[in-house]
Nucleic acid binder design. Structure first.
Length: 278
DNA sequence: CTTACGGCCTGTACGC
DNA sequence: TGCGTACAGGCCGTAA
C-alpha cells in the first residue's frame, strides 16, 4: 500500500503508543511473508523496550534496547493497527500475521493480505550495510535533497523519468502515485528520458516531489484501498490527486482542456496530461 | 554498470 | 449467479 507518506503516517501513529514501552507478548500467526519472519521471533522481541521509531525509505525501524532494529516493510497491503481494552479481544482477521502487546496493554496487529511485507531483526550497526539498505538513494525530505542532488542521480540514465523515480536507487519513498503526481506538478512528461531532467527541470521536479510528499503527510497519506492510520483514521490525500487514477477526466492544471491519459510503463500505470507535461 | 521482465500473493471490480 | 480477466500503493532475482 504504502509510499513514504503512508509509512510516515504509520510511524507517527505508533510512536505515542510504543516508544518507551516494553513489548510483553508477540504472537506469530504465520511466518511466510515476502521472506520468512525471524527465527525465535517472539523470544527476541519480548522483554525489549522500544527506544525510538525511525523510517528509512519505506521501512519502519523500531529501535529496541538491545541494539537491534526491528525492520518492518508494509509491502503493498500491510497495515499496523492499534487496539486497546475490549477491542483487543476482537477475533483475528485471517491476514493478521503478527500481533504484539505493550506493558500498557496496547495491542498492535500487523495485517497483510498479499504478504509482500517484510519483518527482520538486524543489528542497528549493520543496517546500512544490509543488502536491503545498501543501495538506497537519498531521502527526498532531507534538507540536502534538491534539484542538483536529483540531477546527479539521473545523469546518464536512459530509462524514462517515471521509471527512474520508482527506482529506490534514484531516491527513496516515491511510488506509483507520487511519481505521477510529482511529474504532473513539475510539468514533466513521464516518458522523458531521465538524463534530460537536469538544471531547471530537475529543480522543479525535486521541489514537486518534496511538496507532494509533505502535503500528503499532512493529510494522513492516501487511502486508495488499504491504507489506514494505526488509530483507524483514513488518509485524505487521495481527494487531492490531480492525475493518479483519473484517466479520462479533464486535466486540472491549466486550460488545456485535455483528458488525463493512462499508459503503462515498466508494468505500472502512469497517469499524465500530454499537453501540460513535456 | 544499466535496463527489462517475470514472479510473488490475495482481493476486488468488471464484462460476459 | 458464476467465471474469467485485469489490475492493485512494492520489490527481488535473473538475464541480456
Amino acid at each position: 500500500m504504502p509510499e513514504l507518506p503512508e509509512v510516515e503516517t504509520v510511524r507517527c501513529g505508533l510512536i505515542p503508543h510504543l516508544v518507551g514501552r516494553k513489548l510483553v507478548r508477540l504472537l506469530q500467526r504465520r511466518r511466510d511473508l515476502r521472506s520468512p519472519l525471524p527465527t525465535r521471533f517472539a523470544a527476541r522481541v519480548e522483554g525489549r523496550t522500544v527506544e525510538a521509531i525511525d523510517r528509512r525509505a519505506k521501512y519502519l525501524l523500531l529501535r529496541l534496547d538491545d541494539g537491534t532494529s526491528w525492520v518492518i516493510h508494509l509491502g503493498m497491503s500491510g497495515r499496523m493497527t492499534l487496539l486497546s481494552g475490549r477491542d483487543a479481544e476482537a477475533p483475528f482477521d485471517r491476514h493478521d500475521h503478527v500481533v504484539f502487546e505493550t506493558d500498557r496493554g496496547t495491542q498492535v496487529r500487523f495485517n497483510d493480505a498479499r504478504r509482500f511485507g517484510v519483518m527482520l531483526l538486524i543489528g542497528t550497526d549493520a543496517l546500512a550495510k544490509h543488502k536491503l539498505f545498501r543501495h538506497l538513494g537519498p531521502e527526498p525530505l532531507d534538507e540536502s535533497f534538491d534539484g542538483a542532488a536529483l540531477a546527479a542521480r539521473l545523469a546518464g540514465r536512459k530509462t524514462p523519468i517515471k521509471a527512474a523515480l520508482l527506482d529506490q536507487k534514484t531516491l527513496v519513498g516515491v511510488g506509483n502515485i507520487y511519481a505521477c503526481e510529482a511529474l504532473f506538478d513539475a510539468g514533466i512528461s513521464p516518458k522523458r528520458s531521465a538524463h534530460t531532467v537536469q538544471g531547471d527541470r530537475a529543480d522543479r521536479l525535486a521541489r514537486a516531489i518534496r511538496d507532494v510528499l509533505r502535503r500528503s503527510i499532512a493529510d494522513g497519506g492516501s487511502t486508495v484501498r488499504d491504507h489506514v492510520q494505526p488509530d483507524g483514521e483514513l488518509g485524505y490525500f487521495q481527494t487531492r490527486f490531480k492525475v493518479y487514477d483519473r484517466a479520462g477526466l479533464p486535466c486540472p492544471g491549466c486550460d488545456c482542456g485535455k483528458a488525463i491519459r493512462r499508459v503503462v510503463q515498466a508494468g505500472r500505470s502512469t497517469f499524465y496530461c500530454a499537453a501540460r507535461q513535456r
